[in-house]
Simulated scan of single mutants.
Amino acid sequence: MSPSSVGTLITVAPTGAESRKADVPQLPTTLDELVDTAVRCEAAGATLIHLHIRNAEHRPTLDHGLLRASVTALREQTDLVVQLSTGGSVHDPLDLRLTVLDAEPDSCSLTCGTTNFGAEVFLNPWPFMVELYRQSIAREVVPEFELFDLGHVASLRRLLDQEGLPYGGKVHVDLVTGVPGGMPGTPAALLAAVAMLPAEVTSWSATGIGRTHLPIAATALAAGGHLRVGMEDNLVFARGRAVGHNDELVARAAELATLMQRPPLTTGEARELLAVKRR
């Protein structure tokens, strides 16, 4: 793998399950808002969108109809790789989280272990991980392995040893830093995780939560990684200035990547990087 020789995959995570619409009115929670966000973020340089869905009351939901409608609308209006979160909110039951794949996304998240998540617990026991992985292979959905801690890196190694390579044969991971309860959002922590990645990993992205956003982005670009940005992870653009729209974060990531001589990938290049199936 020679990640530094390719451009940059920019993922946008526009909504998440934690922030309340009442507190953050600019958070995209309706289908129209998500489509507008996706179109604007694709124009700014994003090639993959990581989706959490909200219901009519703007609360997190795994409603199958809303998931499928969102996937369909984004495919009609953009060429983005559509990735659905299988994490939902920390309160969603495991069996319901498995049904996310019924919406036939291009990609899905697959978190490689349980972690403390602020005051909550994000539950991802081993049998759930294995079942989700097997379903992703059977349904030809590309998983993105979410790693919140070094133990999750070891669990990915165990999963690949036991179950083999994912659909498409590529292994893409996202190193999530800065979550209270996970690895800190520091260059040292990120590089330690990168050094532990299994040899089968073909590409990796990094996420820095909150104020760790920029140092993690800079470190990832310097180390040959890719970027995830968005209002799921960061609501502050700069000191004293809130994020007004997700495309601001995407545009800044694209500018950083271009300055580092690794400009944003096209959607076609992103699909090739991840071995995503054309649907």
Rank of each mutant, 00 (worst) to 15 (best):
S89D: 14
V229W: 00
E200D: 15
H245P: 04
L101F: 05
H52T: 10
T29K: 02
W126C: 05
I49G: 00
T72H: 11
N234S: 14
D149I: 07
P263F: 09
N116A: 15
E76M: 14
E42K: 07
C112S: 01
T202E: 06
L150W: 12
V171E: 00
H245R: 11
R239P: 15
G168C: 08
M231T: 11
V194L: 05
A154R: 13
V71Y: 01
P93F: 12
N124Q: 10
G88M: 04
P264C: 06
E269M: 08
A253S: 08
T15N: 04
L67H: 02
V243A: 06
L9Y: 10
L175E: 00
P166C: 10
A46Q: 00
T219Q: 10
A195D: 12
L80A: 03
G65Y: 09
V141N: 00
V176Q: 01
R271H: 11
G182D: 04
D149S: 10
I209G: 00
V82T: 08
G7H: 09
A69G: 13
T177E: 05
A56Q: 04
G118P: 10
N116P: 04
P28N: 09
G7V: 12
V179W: 01
T114N: 03
P143A: 12
I49T: 06
L249S: 02
T30E: 11
A275P: 06
R228G: 03
D95V: 15
T78N: 04
T99Q: 13
D95F: 15
E248T: 13
A154I: 10
P93M: 10
C108M: 07
T37R: 00
P125Y: 13
Q162V: 13
P198R: 03
A238T: 14
A44G: 01
A73C: 09
L160A: 03
H245Y: 13
L227G: 00
P198M: 02
T207L: 09
A253L: 03
G182F: 01
S203D: 10
L235N: 08
G16I: 08
L94Y: 11
V194Y: 02
R211L: 14
G151W: 06
F237H: 08
G7S: 09
M183K: 05
A103L: 07
G164E: 08
T61E: 02
I216H: 01
L62S: 02
V142I: 15
R262A: 03
H172F: 14
V153C: 03
H152E: 10
R262G: 02
P127V: 11
V81Q: 00
G87E: 13
F145L: 06
L274N: 01
P14Q: 12
Q162G: 08
L227E: 03
L132A: 09
L98T: 07
T8Y: 05
